[in-house]
Design a protein around this nucleic acid. Structure first.
Lengths: 198, 198
DNA sequence: CCTACCGATCGGTAGG
DNA sequence: CCTACCGATCGGTAGG
């Protein structure tokens, strides 16, 4: 850390690095974010970049953390105003799909990193797993509320439904990122409406 | 190429390299397959490895090609004996799921590479897109047969159904590779049976 | 936060 | 198919 900069400035630089890492990782994957490239892109030295994190793995974890926080601020947060149960979950999935379709995100950061690290044990894989589990738990809780409210049949298999809803999200992500299919969001919404009995 | 080896031996070495690349790529991604690591793993020199392909990109394309061929030999080929339409498609998806659950494949090679290269334009991305389109076309054709045979409603939206079936496959892949959930194949089969009205 | 540097590895080539 | 080599880049450190 520079003794010439205030703590506020140091934190701002750290944020700049992470924002840049998010952009690079969207295109090249989290492993493809190199310290040298971040330094060039930000007009800093490599030592200046890595000094904020210590190791590349710590930088990866910080980047992932920022992505998870952005997702939480956008998706569940915007659905929080809707009625618990089917309404809120429909709204949350709509937000997820809109988030993936947004330019600049490079689709769903979380699902990309999940694929990238599913065969590489370690802290990054663990963190991805934890973040996805939180999202699954959120969906399962809303589904149970919907069952209790009578908006879904009492014999609903909640875990099965979470699995299938997740599949729709993954299909939407692939259709958007790989096939660049403009119909993808609409297809995803239709699938979700059917799964939630609307 | 070595002047001391026959064409048969040369082809066998090429196959060995590609097999090794498939194994490495299952864990580390296609970009993570380095020429040096292949050389070490195979007990060859780097020049000996790259000589068979010319460039790393050509090696990636050859590896992807081999994966596509393996998939075609296993999945649609084993379903070919079933009755066209719902039966054959159900069988094909069962084979796909079993293929993903098999140890050693590292899940579905094709879907991993699809995520890895969805943001990197170039020949590899194009080849992945082509392979996935072939699979989608296959599913769509079987679905149309099923509609014509009256096994699916006449107003079936075939493209929508292909989208949703693909989502189930992606969900199964993630559940197997990341969550290591032994219930994943069964969940996927249940979802597919429901989508195909069984 | 920088300069200067480390050993390791990258993809690839020349020449045999 | 090998040895020997190329310039570039990797993650990271020492010292200021």
């Amino acid at each position: 850390m520079s003794p010439r900069k205030s703590a506020v400035e140091t934190a701002a630089t750290r944020t700049r690095i992470i924002e840049c890492a998010l952009t690079l990782a969207s295109a090249e994957g989290l492993e493809g974010v190199t310290i040298g490239r971040l330094a060039t892109e930000l007009g800093m030295s490599k030592a200046g970049v890595i000094g904020h994190f210590g190791t590349k793995e710590a930088l990866q974890l910080a980047t992932l953390d920022a992505a998870v926080e952005k997702f939480a601020d956008r998706v569940p947060a915007r659905a929080a105003g809707a009625d618990p149960g089917v309404d809120r979950l429909t709204r949350a999935f709509d937000e997820w799909i809109a988030y993936m379709a947004d330019e600049g995100h490079g689709g769903c950061f979380l699902t990309s990193v999940a694929t990238e690290f599913d065969g590489r044990p370690g802290p990054v894989r663990d963190a991805v797993l934890a973040a996805l589990s939180r999202w699954s738990d959120y969906a399962a809780a809303e589904l149970r509320t919907a069952v209790d409210a009578g908006d879904l049949p009492p014999d609903t298999d909640v875990d099965q439904l979470v699995f299938e809803l997740g599949g729709v999200g993954l299909a939407a992500g692939q259709a958007i990122q790989l096939h660049r299919d403009p119909a993808a969001p609409e297809r995803a919404r239709r699938a979700i409406d059917r799964l939630l009995g609307r």
